[in-house]
Simulated scan of single mutants.
Amino acid sequence: MIRISVVIPLYNKEKEISDTLKSVINQSYPADEIIVVDDGSTDNSADIVKGFSDNRIKLIQQKNSGESQARNTGIAAASNEYIALIDADDLWEEDFLLEIKALIERFPNAVFYSTGTYRIDEYGRKIKNKTPLSSDFFGIVNNFYKAFSFSNYGLVFSSSVCIRKSIFLRGYRFPVGEKRGADLYYWLVLSTLGDLAFSGRNLSIYKMNATNRSISPSTEGIIAYNIKWFYTTPSLKELQNYKGIKKFIRKNSLINAYYLALNKDIASLKKTIYFIKQYDFLLFLMLLPAFFMPRFFLRIIKHIRRKFR
Rank of each mutant, 00 (worst) to 15 (best):
L188W: 12
N55Q: 04
K101F: 01
N226L: 09
N142E: 12
A31W: 02
P217N: 05
L59N: 03
I273P: 08
W92A: 15
D280T: 11
V161L: 04
L133W: 00
N143M: 03
F275D: 10
I227N: 03
S159Y: 04
N202C: 13
A77L: 01
N12D: 09
T73E: 06
F138T: 02
F292M: 14
D121W: 02
T192D: 13
F168P: 01
Q27Y: 09
D95Y: 07
M286L: 15
D38R: 10
R305N: 15
L269F: 06
L97W: 00
K228T: 13
L169G: 04
L98Q: 03
Y82C: 03
Q69N: 13
D280A: 14
P234W: 03
F112N: 06
S68L: 06
T233Y: 06
F297S: 15
K22Y: 15
S218N: 07
I120M: 00
L190W: 09
N252T: 15
I222V: 11
T115R: 02
S149Y: 05
G66E: 11
D43M: 05
I127P: 02
I48H: 01
I266M: 07
N263D: 01
R106H: 04
E220P: 04
I83Y: 00
L188C: 14
S23W: 14
Y118S: 09
G244R: 12
L282Y: 15
A88I: 12
V156F: 00
Q27D: 05
K15W: 07
L203V: 10
I48S: 00
R299M: 15
D121Q: 03
I222P: 05
Y279N: 08
S204W: 03
G124Y: 00
N143V: 03
Q240A: 08
S135W: 06
E99L: 01
I2G: 05
D121E: 00
S149M: 02
I304P: 13
G177Q: 07
N143L: 05
E220Y: 09
S268T: 07
N241L: 11
V36D: 11
V49C: 09
N12A: 07
D265N: 01
N12R: 04
G200C: 06
K251L: 13
L103Q: 04
K246R: 14
K228R: 15
S114T: 01
N241F: 12
Y118F: 08
I205R: 10
D195Q: 11
T211E: 09
I100E: 01
S158N: 06
K179S: 14
L21Q: 13
N256G: 13
C162Y: 02
N226G: 09
N80G: 09
S218R: 07
Y258R: 11
K165N: 04
D39W: 11
L298R: 10
E14V: 01
F291V: 12
N80M: 10
Q62N: 08
N202T: 15
K243M: 12
L298V: 12
L133D: 00
L10P: 08
A210M: 10
R309L: 13
A84T: 01
F157K: 02
I48Q: 01
I2T: 08
L169W: 03
I34W: 11
S45C: 08
F148P: 02
L269G: 05
G221T: 06
L169H: 02
G66A: 13
F248Y: 13
N109T: 13
W92T: 12
L59S: 05
W229Q: 10
V161S: 07
L103I: 04
F96M: 09
I222L: 05
